[in-house]
Design a protein around this nucleic acid. Structure first.
Lengths: 242, 242
DNA sequence: CGTAGGTTTGAGTCGGGTCAAGAAATGTGG
DNA sequence: CCACATTTCTTGACCCGACTCAAACCTACG
């Protein structure tokens, strides 16, 4: 079984056999979460790090008026709350958008691994920077793009993040998102997302089925969005190999 | 001279005389930047951390169509790009919104300090978490709030962040922001921000002069925005003192 | 089958954008 | 210290992108 965290870390630093073994050991506590269930509830106190092994999840916040804003999409290989020990309680929730397999990891175990293997610590810090850059990209997306470009940008980002992770290379990428989830991620309405997807479908850029959609023409989507992928892996050449 | 970084760190951990001295020494390279100048230009390669000593700055991104989105406001005591060594080049710029005094800090010097004083390292990681939480709050703000609440939320956040930092306590808070800057931070238009401020002025919640405004009724602004400050200092009681 | 969650479509509304002109402040150079 | 240029703010008229409300339609699944 390919642990997606290993795939991810390997982009940033060399991992020897022992490293791989150590990381596999981190993930000894694996759980399956059904779609729609919360991995973390808002306001909850948590003392574990989540690693998404398979499936999609979302970090979200609910507003008093009942609306929801998704602040991050969590794909296989993504870690949630790497530094959770520092926080009194989570200020948002995490929900499974598909059936999700997660590993519960003890913060201590990560700290030990980081101390033992500085290159891994380095790769994890790097991961944190990418996370931050992604949030900034989302702010720009919501603040300064119209619905069509906004959707195109999200799809471009997801495609890039998915590349070389879980998906078989070369195949068209599939996103298991409902239109409401897309809306909540982009600050739009499900109704309006529907119309936008309609337009993208009409132009032959995507196809969509109930509860998911497939990208047909990624280059065109990127162009529509003015997508620049350098925030997602700011030149891995720079990283110091271990 | 009160170093605002010291003020900030003291909220998270104990600093002895030697610590304070060490931090002062970090800030030996101080520069003044005129309003409108860039501390960092997009795409530039940098190898220093910036500490805002006084004045306001903004992290922003420009889009091909010429519009600008501010992704973060940097107030006295704020650090920019604590982990800049890891990045090939900055994916956004930083501009001085007022005359700004910054300290240029060598990443190595920070790394040394962190190694020598783990509680300070801890406090800095904490700072990173607050930064992330702030970005998430901005995503929610832009995605799910109307202009009036959005402005009220920004003002509430800024007030909270300013509390006990540079400003004399008790006095009404003053923001040196133009309406265009507010617009660029909130994903709105300067024209529309003008109308919103008009409304807030009419309700007696703020006053505004050219190039700045003053909060008169913070509690009401918070209420309008549904502002919850717990993302800014997730219970400092939890932190481990040094 | 029946039902629930998800999608589609239409009609109407409205928040906020755009364009444009003018008024105050502020700064600059003579 | 005044005349002029520049920013910033203000206001009005108009428009359009996205929201709301509502109904109907799928389709997976129990």
């Amino acid at each position: 079984m390919d642990n997606p965290l290993i795939v991810r870390l390997r982009r940033q630093c060399h991992l020897d056999i022992a490293d791989i073994d150590r990381i596999e050991q981190l993930c000894d506590d694996v759980r399956d979460v059904a779609r729609g269930m919360n991995l973390v509830r808002e306001g909850e106190r948590i003392d574990r790090v989540h690693l998404v092994l398979s499936g999609w999840a979302a970090r979200y916040k609910l507003l008093p008026n009942g609306s929801r804003q998704i602040t991050a999409l969590l794909l296989p290989g993504d870690l949630c709350d790497l530094r959770c020990t520092m926080l009194a309680r989570m200020d948002d929730g995490i929900v499974a958008l598909t059936p999700v397999r997660v590993a519960y990891i003890l913060p201590d175990a990560i700290a030990r691994l980081e101390r033992m293997r500085p290159p891994i610590a380095h790769a994890l810090s790097w991961y944190g920077l990418v996370e931050q850059a992604t949030m900034r990209a989302w702010i720009v997306n919501m603040g300064r793009r119209h619905a069509l470009e906004r959707v195109a940008h999200l799809f471009s980002e997801l495609s890039t993040r998915l590349m070389g992770m879980s998906d078989p290379p070369g195949q068209p990428l599939h996103f298991p998102l409902t239109q409401e989830e897309i809306a909540d991620a982009l600050g739009l309405t499900a109704v309006h997302v529907n119309r936008v997807l309609n337009e993208l479908r009409r132009r032959g850029l995507i196809t969509s089925r109930r509860g998911g959609l497939t990208v047909l023409d990624l280059p065109m989507l990127k162009q529509m969005a003015g997508f620049n992928d350098n925030y997602l892996h700011p030149a891995m050449a720079e990283s110091i190999a271990g």
